[in-house]
Design a protein around this nucleic acid. Structure first.
Lengths: 200, 200, 200, 200
DNA sequence: GATGAATGAGTCTTCATTCAT
DNA sequence: CATGAATGAAGACTCATTCAT
């Protein structure tokens, strides 16, 4: 593949990508057929296979793009900040914001995560995300701001909580992402409990 | 359906259920064919349809059973305890333990959650789980032990974090569920941050 | 087959026959499954195959019985009459009456007539019916009462018209069989046209 | 459906239609499988579903086409004639001629008439036929040529007799359609009986 | 006589992919 | 670049029939 595409070609490719994202997110990857996609676009089957080697490649492409785009958003959010705790908070907020504006991609990534078959494709992106978060955690531990727990476990906890809240409150209940992020950050940083003098 | 089954019939049914759980978890729901299941069991195709109306019904049955079983485990874990915070912690530990001993079911439930098509079937179980957790949170707020944040959001946060840590550390890295639970509970209750005198 | 049956066995057999007639007539022969029949009767599959060798044999049995029964009704209707024209009229009336009280059988016979596969089974009954009618026609021609046209063709015309009117007016519109028979007989005997002096 | 078809596509579609008509007529609708059709045509199974949504849709298409074609033949036959009795006679002759040249379609229409399942599809065509015939009957009654019996019943009688004679003499015994039509028309118009002076 | 269980060939249909034009 | 057509393996499901108990 990796065809050189004309301007128009690139637009076509994008069209397919976008339509497929919508269908995959709504119906699921397997239940959505290539026929459905090209029909929805009003083009022949040939078009699809001109731009993508297979249905799977298309999906993988979507996944890669999504992970990349999210990461871009996260990096942009924290680039001017050095405090590790701030970075974690900003990362979470950026994730929430991105997730709010890309509900379909959020869903597709979640789905891919449950399928052994797409695990390999997800791995790299996931690891990057964990590494990013893990780094900040470690930095925070080093500066004494963050409790000395397993950094990787903490990184996963951050990611998992964020994703779950995004799915439920952003996509199911349409709560504003700022509000959800506020609670998530607050909970994550300070925990469930009311700080008691004796415990401190 | 709802056939009257003999002893032998009930065993067969269980066999199918168990084998299907394994295949669905490993290969995914859609990629696993009914043919594959009956072949793996060494029986004729008709057997499958003697016990289940369709592949989908079988899957729904699995889901229902899983949610029920998890809930049973959670209730058993907290029945002798009244302190809400303790209950939350015990519930998380029970979830981790259950998840550790039913990795396939954990995965299938996660998958179903990403598919619009199975949403309805999941809803009830999910809501029950959230309601259970939410109740404890509210109780904790009432007793002044838990911070006054949106109880439902907190409930989802607990669930999401637990599920994510279970998936990653229990199933991918085979860390003992007690260890994972310890960190999860600690993080959830007290947060990421080191309590500072000024903050308290 | 041809099993010796106990009293109870005969009742069972009848039950199956009657239920099958109803299902075949409503749904069609092919779309009705043996499972549907035994289920509707609340018995096991074994019962069916105890009384009938196959689904086809059952259907053939129904057909044979129906043709026999209709013929019996026709013979009874004309036994005291010798005039051939009278006999034709009475035969038609008997057919209408029988058809009115056995709508399902009427339908099944019609269906079997369109299927090459059941042609052989129908043939004998059909031929008997045609022979009966043909005989009366020939007698009528001999006595000078009936016009000298091809007797066999006339016989078929009588049968076809009767069957069509039975289906449409008896079964679809629920007109009384006496009324339909009156018109049919009158039309058949005297034709569509108003007799004109010049034509006679 | 309703695909845009190329010249070649239209030919394929016709091929399938024609082959299916032959198989359905010989073997029956249900016993004829889609596999049998595509195999007989030497094409892949997908071809069938490229042109038809389902086996049923194909059959319905055949039925519709047949009814339309017969009606066209009838209208063409009577277009230059105004006398209602003439029209009835010509309509019967046209039906016989059409039936003689489309024996398979005749059989399929007969079959469909016996199946509740296809009743809806047949209804419209049947009603049209009855309405056409009924109109001529009514006209004939108005002009005093036709006896004053229930017009609709007469219409059905005409249709039923014609169909039955067509099936038996055209298709089973291969009598020429002109001869059969002669007898049918004569019988229908003047009846079975020799006109007697006393009756007139 | 009767039941639940099992068989497995066969049914309709789908779908990713290829290809001639 | 793009289309309509074609492929055929594979999928879910059905069903007449048989059989152990």
């Amino acid at each position: 593949m990796t065809r050189r595409l004309t301007q128009r070609g690139q637009e076509r490719r994008r069209q397919i990508l976008d339509f497929a994202i919508a269908r995959f997110a709504e119906n699921g990857y397997h239940p959505t057929s290539v026929a459905e996609i090209v029909q929805g676009l009003g083009v022949g089957k040939g078009v699809f296979y001109w731009y993508f080697e297979s249905k799977e490649e298309l999906f993988l492409e979507i996944l890669k793009e999504a992970q990349l785009d999210l990461r871009r958003a996260q990096r942009a959010a924290i680039e001017d900040v050095t405090d590790p705790v701030e970075r974690i908070a900003l990362g979470m907020r950026a994730t929430m914001a991105w997730s709010a504006s890309h509900p379909e991609l959020h869903r597709l990534v979640q789905f891919a995560g449950t399928q052994e078959h797409f695990a390999a494709a997800m791995r790299k992106g996931q690891e990057t995300a964990v590494r990013d978060a893990g780094r900040h955690v470690r930095d925070g531990i080093a500066t004494g701001q963050i409790r000395d727990l397993d950094p990787e476990m903490l990184a996963h906890a951050i990611l998992g909580m964020t994703a779950q809240l995004a799915r439920e409150f952003l996509h199911e209940r349409h709560v504003s992402h700022e509000v959800v992020a506020d609670t998530a950050v607050s909970l994550l940083l300070d925990g469930l409990l009311v700080p008691s003098p004796t415990r401190a």
